[in-house]
Each structure stands twice: as structure tokens, then as C-alpha cells.
Write a protein that binds this DNA or RNA. Structure first.
Lengths: 241, 241
DNA sequence: CGCTGGTTTGAAGGTCGTCAAGAAGGGTGG
DNA sequence: CCACCCTTCTTGACGACCTTCAAACCAGCG
């Protein structure tokens, strides 16, 4: 595999082996860097969206609001993930995106993107794969909400985030930095903050996971994987056709 | 809009205005017709998949199995929907598909598909939009499971299916044929069959919806829409770029 | 040092699941 | 046309999981 400088090249390098030229094209996409503060809304539901980003640093959450004011987080975005790609392609966004921590983003224009999609068939395929993986994550999330209890959901999310971070060279086997508040976990897992707290307590008491000062520490990885019968298959899409 | 013969042309005709030539290309895709009985598995999780279909008649359900044997239905497929498209593109399927009723399918080969994607940029875009709509449906489903109670979930699904059927010329404003068993509703909505039954009873007692002999009758559409504050936005993706 | 956002805990209640059993519907064969 | 079967639907009682409400605690930060 060719050397990869930016997170985007590293991410897409997981799907196809990038040539040096292709790596350069991707690295050039990341030239226009933007910084946004925690809590700021990057994209709002219903807005016409013409900007597209790759996360360089920090976490974001994409969510939908329900009429009574509560929200359901669809997915978290970590370094290397696309942000707003689908919104741009569909012209109008069907979800909102908020910064969960201070974010560093690489912004690129729609025209630039379209040119690459048309000219670079291999990169186009890799992006399609990346989007498919995002969908697979959402589907797994759906299974979580439908058929797992609070403890299993939480354990599953903790493991998934750890795996995804390690895929882009962040965190390590025994833990990772995690800017999420308990409320974010709750909104992602379809639970209340209070119940998330109790579930964390149980994970702590079972000596599986501890969370403190924005750090997840995985004490017993084996037992944790066992608890949810975790399969990382969905995080590793097959090779392109 | 050009006349459309098959469900596929009718579906994609919603995203782009099809020329007569394009309609013919799509109609030709639907030449190889397959019939499968209710309950048969069309695609199994983990299988390498090389076939791709469009539903001509009948309903299917795509689902994932959880380790304890229960299943979570991800989405239902009705006439005009793709079936196995993503599995083919990813080579190995991450979900299973079962026939909910007797199915009539149009099968087309991967090579045929790839040729069309490469040659017919407009059709390629329309297919991308169709896939995006499928994802939007899954996301809305996720919000259902995370932030709505049993009655709201059921009402939402009933409305959504009605809207989708009407988009392909099936059903009418006051109801539609629905081959789903209560167990299918349960597995889609993350509930038990028994609780689905109770929820249907409540919908019946509130004079909103009645279900009998595989037929959904919508008695008070206004109140039903109000109950879930339904917005059909996600079923109508914006126009292609 | 006090403020603010976030975490933790308790008590009580509601939604939904589990268990168990009966009723209704649809198809098949006598 | 009825008897029989099997699937699906329906109902009741009880209990678990998760929510709601209310309040105390803690950590970081001006």
C-alpha cells in the first residue's frame, strides 16, 4: 500500500490500494481546513447544502429531531469520515450534524468532488464503498435499537467506536479518548441519560469498561465482546468488484 | 414524463425524466422473470451474491439475525424496489432477504448492470438516488425504534407503506393490500407480536386503522398522520444535481 | 470561590415482554 | 359440506426493563 498522509487517503486506502498519484489527489482535497467549536451545528435538517467535509480531528454526530424536541443520533463521525457527502448529492439535507467536540475539517467543493468522481473511477468506487460502510453501521445500529437491551447496546457502541478509531490509527486496544457526554450515548441508543448512567455503572461493576474524564478504558475486552457477541464484519466491507 | 411500462421505469422516472430510449433499456432489464414462494430465502447473510432483482409483484423483507435467534427487519421491499443491489456491489451480503408473499421478480446480471452504470450516466444517477432513498427510509426507521412508542411506530410504518405503494400505483388513499403477518410488524418495529396485536387493537378502537384479511383500511387518515406527525419528505429525495 | 454543565443516586410508575391458553381463519381431505 | 389441522390472531395476568421526577454531588473554569 502506498504511504498515506491524510486521514482520507488512509481511509480510502482500506478499500483500494492507492497509487501515489491518487494519494496526492486525495491529499490535495484536504487543503482548505476549517475549525468549528463543540456544539455548533454544521448542517441543519431541511437546509440546502453545498459544502462537503472530511473530518481531520474531533468527533461529530448526525441526528434527526423528533417533533417533541428529542433527538435520535444516527451515527457519529470520527477522523477520516465524510460529513455532508450525501446531503450534497441529494441537494437538501434530511438530517442535522453537530460537533461533539472541537472539530478540524477539510472542506472541499462540490464541483471538485464531481470532477474527481467523473475522472477517477477507482476513487469513485472507493467512496461508494465508504458510503456503503456508513450504511452498514446504521443498519447495525438499527438492530441494536430493535433487538438489544441497554447494556448490550452500550457495550456494542463502545466496541464499535474503538474499532473504528483503531482503523484510522487512533486509540489502542485498552481504550480511547471519547468526547461523548452520557446524553450523547443516550440519544444514540434510544435511552435516557439516567439509564445510560446506570448501564455504565454496571459495566464498571462487572469490570468490563470504565469511563472517566472523557476516556474509555476497556478492562476486559474478551468478556465485553462476548457480552454482545460482537462481529466486526460490518466494519470491513468486501473488496471492490 | 415518457410513458413507463415496468415498475423499474416507473420508479426511476420519479427521479429523472426518462427518454423513450432509456425506458426501453430499463424495460429490457426486466426480461428474465422469476417466481418464488412466500417464506423462501432469496439471499442469506454471509453469502457471496451475484444476482440482483427488481420486485415486479409481491413483498420481501430484508433482515438481520441476532445471536439469540430473533431477527430485526431492516426494510420491506415492494414492487419497483431493488433487491440485492448493494449485496452484489459489496460482493458479500451483510443481510438476508425473505419473501413475505409470493414474489414475481425481474432478475438481471451483474455484468448487464455494470455496463448500464458505465454507459448510462443518467440512469446511474437515478439508481444512486433510489439507493439514497432506501437509506433515508432506514434512517427514519432508526428514529422510530429509538424515539417513538409502539403505537407511533406502527402508525408510522402503516402510513409509510401506504405512501410507497401509491408511488408505484398500488393501493389507494383509504387502504392497501398488505401481506405482512403481525410477527413481521413486530420484527420490523422491535416489538413482540403480542404487543403489535395490542397496538392494532388500539388503532382499531381509536377508529384510525383496521387490519383484516391481509388488508389495511385507513379510517381516519388525518388523525393518523397527526398521531405521528408524519412528514413524507424522506420518501421524496430532491432532484439530481 | 461560586457557577455551570455533567454525573450519580433513589423512589415510583408506565410501557412493553413473558408465559399460558383460547379463538378464529384458511386450507386439505374425507 | 364437514372434520381436521395448522397458522395466525387475541386476550389476561404478572413481571422486568426503562422512564420520569427530584435532588444531591462533582469537576472544571472564570
Amino acid at each position: 500500500m502506498a504511504y498515506a498522509t491524510g486521514p482520507l487517503a488512509r481511509k480510502l486506502g482500506r478499500y483500494i490500494t492507492l497509487s501515489t498519484a491518487e494519494t496526492h489527489i486525495l491529499d490535495r482535497l484536504e487543503s482548505d481546513v476549517v475549525i468549528v467549536e463543540r456544539q455548533s451545528e454544521l448542517i441543519s435538517e431541511g437546509e440546502e447544502e453545498r459544502r462537503c467535509y472530511v473530518v481531520l480531528d474531533g468527533w461529530a454526530a448526525c441526528y434527526k429531531q423528533v417533533p417533541d424536541g428529542r433527538r435520535q443520533i444516527i451515527n457519529f463521525m470520527i477522523p477520516g469520515d465524510f460529513l455532508g457527502l450525501r446531503s450534497v448529492l441529494l441537494q437538501v439535507s434530511d438530517h442535522s450534524v453537530v460537533a461533539v467536540s472541537k472539530l478540524r475539517l477539510a472542506r472541499f467543493s462540490v464541483t471538485e468532488l464531481r470532477r474527481i468522481l467523473a475522472e477517477q473511477a477507482r476513487i469513485c468506487a472507493a467512496i461508494f464503498w465508504a458510503l456503503s460502510r456508513d450504511e452498514a453501521i446504521i443498519v447495525e445500529h438499527l438492530v441494536d435499537l430493535g433487538r438489544r437491551n441497554a447494556l448490550e447496546r452500550l457495550a456494542h457502541l463502545i466496541i464499535e467506536l474503538g474499532e473504528r478509531l483503531r482503523q484510522v490509527g487512533l486509540g489502542h486496544e485498552h481504550g480511547y479518548h471519547c468526547p461523548l457526554r452520557q446524553e450523547d450515548f443516550a440519544d444514540a441508543l434510544g435511552l435516557t441519560t439516567i439509564h445510560i448512567n446506570r448501564s455504565f455503572r454496571e459495566l464498571r461493576e462487572r469490570q468490563l469498561v470504565t469511563l472517566s474524564r472523557r476516556n474509555v478504558r476497556i478492562n476486559d475486552r474478551e468478556k465485553l465482546l462476548q457480552l454482545v457477541e460482537f462481529s466486526d464484519h460490518y466494519l470491513h466491507p468486501g473488496t471492490p468488484l
